[in-house]
């Protein structure tokens, strides 16, 4: 999956300093698959130990696939979802954006 360089992975960008665990759980998704999202918009809320934090869109585009549903656990660095960047933001790879 990850060889598709036209897609952008949604991950927890900054793991909190004050937790020991390398696992988290997705608490709430605020958008569904196929939703149009804007860069830095909050996509979901995750909980790591007792710390809740929002995960923001790394790019403007379409949320094409959610890999970790609500209540699903994930490892540090794991991809939670994929965004296909909007065409004007990814003009350099314009042919592959519909995939």
């Amino acid at each position: 999956m990850s060889e598709h360089t036209d897609r952008v992975a949604v991950t927890v960008a900054e793991w909190p300093d004050d937790v020991e665990s390398d696992e988290g759980v997705v608490v709430n998704w605020f958008v569904g698959e196929d939703a149009d999202v804007e860069e830095s918009e909050s996509l979901c809320e995750v909980q790591i130990e007792k710390v809740s934090l929002d995960v923001y869109a790394p790019a403007t585009g379409t949320l094409t696939e959610i890999l970790c549903a609500e209540d699903a656990e994930f490892e540090r660095g794991e991809t939670l979802a994929w965004i296909s960047p909007a065409e004007d933001e990814a003009a350099q790879s314009s042919e592959q954006n519909d995939e």
Binding site: N28, W29, F30, V31, G32, A35, D36, E38, E45
Partner: peptide, 14 residues
């Protein structure tokens, strides 16, 4: 407008 129609919020955030 498109975002507003698809974005969902928890009750606390609303």
């Amino acid at each position: 407008a498109a975002e507003a129609s698809t974005r969902e919020l928890t009750m606390s955030r609303a």
